[in-house]
């Protein structure tokens, strides 16, 4: 996509995404942080639209806003002591350092990569994407789903209490 409108949209989206991402870090209230995170996800979907990848944008909204954000909300609801105000934590300093070094690595990679500029409109159609996913890249695709299932089972095993174990042993 080209034009003045696209440039304006890019900067507006960039500001929105970055401010929302900052909000995730700054916000003391866990639920506010999740709401900021949702705004970030929507901003990223906007970038996909600007890159003429409409299907990816929609998938971003369905998966990240519709499913993952909702799951995070659910996790917050089910977490004991996820109160409205979170107090200071002793991990603040190490976490900041880790985030800064991660950002440095990313910036370094982005700066040093020789980006190839595509002149024509890529026109990524949904069926091409589907054929690539379940054709060429079917093995990574399936492994990713197995990994997610393993994570799910692991999470369930981790949160089981001894009482539940005993109940299941009786049954």
């Amino acid at each position: 996509m080209e034009g003045v409108g696209v440039t304006i949209a890019f900067w507006v989206l960039a500001a929105l995404t970055l401010i929302a991402a900052g909000g995730v870090m700054v916000s003391r209230n866990l639920l506010h942080a999740v709401l900021f995170l949702i705004v970030t996800f929507i901003g990223i979907a906007g970038f996909f639209v600007l890159l003429s990848a409409a299907f990816l944008a929609m998938a971003q909204i369905i998966i990240y806003v519709g499913a993952i954000a909702v799951l995070i909300l659910f996790a917050i609801l089910l977490t004991p002591r996820a109160g409205r105000g979170n107090s200071e934590t002793k991990f603040a300093l190490p976490a900041t350092l880790l985030a800064i070094s991660l950002a440095a690595v990313f910036l370094f990679v982005i700066h040093d990569t020789d980006w190839e500029v595509v002149q024509e409109d890529p026109s990524l159609a949904a069926n091409q994407l589907g054929e690539a996913l379940v054709g060429t890249w079917v093995v990574p695709f399936e492994i990713a789903s197995v990994l997610l299932t393993a994570a799910l089972v692991g999470a369930i095993m981790l949160v089981r209490t001894p009482e539940e174990e005993a109940e299941d042993a009786l049954a």
């Binding site: 409409a54 929609m58 998938a59 806003v65 519709g66 499913a67 909702v70 909300l73």
Partner: peptide
């Protein structure tokens, strides 16, 4: 008349749940 209209509709219709959740919380 976007080529991914069906996915667009599904994406948009997954948003009000969040508003309802915000309301309830």
């Amino acid at each position: 008349d976007i080529p991914v209209a069906l996915v667009y509709f599904l994406a948009i219709s997954s948003l009000p749940v969040l508003a309802s959740f915000m309301a309830g919380w």
